[in-house]
Computed example of a mutant assay.
Amino acid sequence: MQLLVVGAGEMGRWFARHSGADAVAFADRDPEVAREAADETADATTVPLDTDERFEVVCVAVPMTAVPDAIAEHATKATEAVVDVSGEMRDSVAALSTHAESRERASFHPLFSASNAPGNIPIVVDSGGATVDAIRESLSTAGNEVFETTPEEHDRAMETVQARAHTAVLAYALAAEEVDPRFQTNLSEPLDELVDRIVGNTPEVYAEIQERFEGGDSVAEAARALSEADRETFLDLYEEAGR
């Protein structure tokens, strides 16, 4: 399988390694980033973004807000399939349907950073076939759990597992004061570890998630309700949280 990866960042490189491709070409708005990706990937090279070469598969691995435009620009370079590894599926799948109509189409969302792979990968197969099946099998062989979903189910889930979760952890980080580690509890210590896992990554990714998915406001509202609650109200909220 000949693969073009548009976007030579962390997830583009991860996909290139585990997609089952026999040969990979990277294209990126920063040619040096593309060269670095090719240097660390077996049987890989680089091409300019405006290349007129054709590849069996095109994978779009750019920030989620840029995915629809990237699909529109590069879908015609694929002879068999166009896929993406963005973090949202409503706009991505719509762009795939519009601009890759005669090709196999699928949207993958690795729910992890490349350094934490393998993990769970929801997928929306907009138009399946042998090529998408082969990619899916290769990702599964690498230890990932690939499972089918819908754009609506996926994006609704991201409001909780990403937007709300990130808001809660970062809010704790902003509110917490530094304490002697000996005071840590079996609850506060894991929270600190979660903070470290988030703030050690790329902040632009988290900003995009907060911009794209609703959910953060509800965490703020819940925190306000808890902090202002009298005893009886707090007990009711505590019980509600455990349901």
Rank of each mutant, 00 (worst) to 15 (best):
V6G: 00
V6Q: 03
F15E: 02
A16N: 09
A16W: 10
R17V: 12
G20T: 05
D22F: 04
A23R: 03
V24I: 15
P31N: 12
E36Y: 08
E36C: 10
A37C: 13
A38P: 06
A38N: 09
E40Y: 08
D43P: 08
T45W: 15
T46G: 13
V47W: 06
P48S: 09
D50V: 05
D52L: 09
D52F: 06
E53L: 14
E56L: 02
E56S: 04
V58P: 01
C59L: 10
V60Y: 00
P63F: 10
A66N: 05
A70C: 12
A75M: 03
E80G: 06
V83P: 00
D84W: 05
M89L: 09
D91T: 13
V93E: 00
A94S: 05
A95V: 02
L96V: 00
H99Y: 15
E104H: 01
F108Q: 04
H109W: 05
H109C: 04
P110G: 13
A114G: 13
S115W: 07
I121T: 01
S127C: 00
G129V: 01
A130N: 12
V132M: 02
D133R: 03
D133C: 04
D133P: 03
L139K: 00
G143M: 12
F147V: 11
F147D: 11
T149F: 04
E152T: 09
E153F: 09
D155E: 07
D155I: 03
A157C: 08
M158H: 12
E159S: 15
Q162N: 12
A163E: 11
V169R: 10
A171R: 12
A171K: 09
A176N: 13
V179E: 15
L187W: 07
E189H: 06
D192M: 04
D192S: 05
V199Y: 08
G200H: 06
P203R: 06
E204T: 14
A207V: 13
A207C: 10
I209W: 10
E211K: 14
R212K: 15
F213Y: 15
G215T: 03
G216A: 10
G216M: 07
D217W: 02
D217F: 01
R224S: 14
L226G: 10
S227M: 14
S227I: 13
S227E: 15
E228L: 08
A229S: 15
A229Y: 14
D230F: 03
D230N: 07
D230C: 01
L237I: 01
L237E: 02
Y238F: 12
E239T: 14
G242R: 15
